[in-house]
């Protein structure tokens, strides 16, 4: 599948925003985070800013942006529509939670929990858009939903730990970030093992129905140059490049941000601040690279008609 930058920026950036929003919405009312108004403003501005930037980026994927509002109508059948509805609905409790906290110094448990719930459901909807697509077996499996949820938790926790360095460094949150980073990396490794070993769902023989006559090879394509199907669904990445990018995501992204979080946990002062401030964007780099690979390594069934032997 073609790794469209607009969609990858959307799910990584707003994923981090929703992760941060969910943590703030649940942990602040439960007295685990400072009730400082400036902290509230900084953290919620970062969360809602990231969500908004991500949602705007996703608009660039559309052919007719001016009609985007129509996407709220089909929530009964479409995960994309559900995602849109919940994403917009989440602004209500999140905004209320922020206004009450920043302007009135009141941390509302109800608004916080509703905002957190909206954040989690939105990320679930995003994951389900991919997970529900049968023609892409590397998306249509049980690893995708935990992958998306954990990546959001990891990036949200990393940013929360970084902001807290300026207000009240919190070893418990840094530990949460460490655990989430390790778990996200482990589940990603599990996903990669799964897609490398999974038996093919469909073959050129089942796509053409020419099952009894021996191997099916493309002799002549229907057209001499590229078309929409090949540009959108026919993206291919060399195995060695994919392996290099997987190593990069694991070391530079997950590994380095884990080590830096560890440094932030055991040190204090400016070293801890710098370590936490570097850990968050590096974790995002890791998620961005794995998300790019999530698209680049996914094979669509339509490629079976164009010479691919199995997906």
């Amino acid at each position: 599948m073609h790794p469209a930058l607009s969609v990858i920026i959307f799910s990584t950036t707003s994923g981090a925003g929703y992760g941060l929003l969910a943590l703030l919405g649940i942990l602040t009312p439960l007295e685990n985070l400072p009730h400082d108004r400036i902290f509230g403003f900084a953290a919620l501005a970062l969360a809602l800013g990231a969500i908004t930037v991500g949602l705007l980026a996703s608009m660039f994927h559309l052919g007719r942006r001016e009609r985007a509002w129509r996407a709220f109508s089909q929530w009964r059948s479409s995960w994309l529509s559900r995602e849109g509805v919940v994403a917009v609905a989440t602004y209500l409790p999140a905004g209320l939670f922020g206004i009450l906290w920043v302007f009135f110094g009141r941390v509302s448990l109800t608004a916080g929990v509703l905002a957190a719930l909206g954040a989690v459901v939105t990320v679930c909807c995003t994951a389900m858009i991919y997970r529900s697509l049968k023609p892409v077996p590397r998306w249509h499996n049980g690893w995708v939903l935990p992958n998306y949820l954990l990546a959001a938790l990891m990036s949200g926790a990393l940013w929360l730990a970084a902001i807290l360095q300026f207000f009240a460094p919190n070893p418990a949150i840094t530990l949460l970030a460490l655990a989430a980073t390790a778990l996200t990396a482990l589940v990603k490794i599990g996903y990669w093992r799964f897609i490398d070993d999974a038996a093919p769902t469909s073959t050129a023989a089942s796509a053409t129905g020419l099952v009894n006559s021996g191997p099916v090879r493309l002799f002549e394509a229907p057209h001499t140059s590229q078309n929409y199907l090949l540009k959108e669904m026919g993206f291919e990445i060399a195995r060695k490049h994919a392996a290099k990018l997987r190593r990069m995501a694991l070391t530079l992204g997950f590994g380095l941000s884990f080590l830096l979080s560890l440094v932030a946990l055991v040190t204090t002062g400016w070293l801890a601040v710098i370590a936490a401030l570097l850990a968050a964007p590096l974790g995002m780099v890791g998620i961005f690279v794995e998300r790019w690979l999530f698209f680049a390594e996914a094979k669509h069934a339509v490629t079976l008609y164009y010479g691919q032997t199995a997906v």
């Binding site: 994927h61 559309l62 052919g63 023609p135 339509v302």
Partner: peptide, 24 residues
Amino acid sequence: LCIGCKLCSWACPYGAREFDEDVG
């Protein structure tokens, strides 16, 4: 009504849907 999100073309294993870049 189409917003050109292309998701339907991802959902079709048979490649029946094609995006018109010009019309969006």
